[in-house]
Amino acid sequence: MSRIVACYKWVAEEADIRINADLSVDLSKAKGKISDYDRNAIEAAVQAAEALGGKAVSLTFGTQKAKASLKDVLSRGPEEGCWVNGEEADNADSSVTARALAAAIKKIEDVSLIICAEGASDTYARQIGPRIGAILNLPVITSVAKMTFVGETLQAVRKLDDCLQTVEVELPAVVAVLPEINSAPIPGLKAVMAAGKKPVTEYKSADLGVDLTPKTQVTAFKGYVMQRKNIILSGDVGENVAALVAALRKEGVL
């Protein structure tokens, strides 16, 4: 049975990121989550598997922390999970991530389609899908807003800056989907219960036989803080509106 691979990244919840006074960034208190748009990629894989009569498989490259993602992702529908476990994921750049994922995909049999999201919520680099395609020498379609399958042919609608483009490709292929492609449902009780029993394959990054040294060198990683007046009014609405109008007038914007 053909497999549809959904790539997802376990990222830090950006709302939990703390910026210290010296603008250094503290990620230690941030909870993990499946990157927002990857939830749509996972759902797209589940739907594609149904359309193609195949099996959706989830794939992530992450540190030990990503272990917590397995139950979460499998409750969203894929039948098997695959995890490339390596501490290198913490400072991987796009080239390392794409290489690691491509190597893992080679180990999965009968892959007919690889689905990434447009961009991850931390990097939002929008590179991994096309890079995986290049490494595996597979055709790539990015900015996908809609997919339909006729036999082994995928027809995709791409949303580009100034046009909607319809393209066709014979599988296997790599696609990067936009979040608009579907609305990823919140998993129900049975799905969550079933997730714990689905099979998971774990690869150690070192066993993939690829170079895991980043090509870019990060020289600074600094938080951004907006300095604003933060005058917040609560209580009586009439008074607040009057106070606001007075303030805006004083500021010279009215």
């Binding site: 830090a12 950006e14 990121i17 910026i19 960034v25 919520s121 931390d122 990097t123 939002y124 090509k215 870019t216 060198q217 990060v218 020289t219 600074a220 990683f221 600094k222 938080g223 951004y224």
Partner: peptide, 15 residues
């Protein structure tokens, strides 16, 4: 920008 704009990352590329 990283993390939706919360963080600024500087990188050096060679080659």
């Amino acid at each position: 920008m990283m993390y939706g704009g919360a963080v600024l990352q500087r990188e050096t590329l060679s080659g």
